[in-house]
């Protein structure tokens, strides 16, 4: 055993045999049945990564604005292309999810909403809120522009 910490990952199964416990995220599917809570948990990380990639566009946008009108026209044209709009749509949905679920996490940090029925209710609220905010944001965008 190379690391003492691995000792904590050894357990006995129902037949009394020594087995290694699975590690996250490889528990979904094999060791755990599908649950809303675990899906929303991994989605929080995935949307966090998506929004992180989205900061590249924020950087490009600000750097272009500080460089020249031509550079800014290029980034504006990209954001209005179908590919740019697709990225913006994905990033906006990810951002709304991460924002709403982040508020859910902050509530838990404050000790609020820990009961299982509340956890499920807030989970569904995040899912519905993400869809509503994303649709509203793009509907407003189409109406304004």
């Amino acid at each position: 055993m190379p690391d003492i910490r691995d000792a904590l990952l050894v357990t006995r199964n129902t037949e009394g045999k020594l087995v290694q416990r699975p590690l996250s995220p490889f528990m979904l599917g094999s060791a755990y049945r599908f649950q809303l809570t675990s899906l929303l948990s991994i989605l929080h990380r995935l949307t966090g990564i998506a929004v992180s990639v989205g900061t590249l566009l924020l950087t490009w946008w600000l750097v272009a604005a500080a460089t020249s009108p031509e550079a800014y026209a290029t980034v504006s044209a990209f954001m209005r292309s179908w590919f740019g709009l697709l990225l913006l749509f994905g990033w906006s949905a990810s951002l709304f999810y991460h924002l709403l679920n982040g508020i859910r996490h902050l509530a838990w940090d404050g000790g609020i909403g820990f009961d299982l029925p509340q956890v499920h209710a807030s989970g569904w609220a995040v899912v519905i809120g993400t869809v509503v905010l994303t649709v509203l944001a793009w509907a407003a965008g189409i109406a304004v522009l």
Partner: peptide, 15 residues
């Protein structure tokens, strides 16, 4: 003990 005969699970609790 050994799991499925492929990994030595000896644990030394000397810490």
């Amino acid at each position: 003990e050994t799991t499925k005969g492929r990994r030595d699970l000896r644990v030394e609790m000397m810490r």
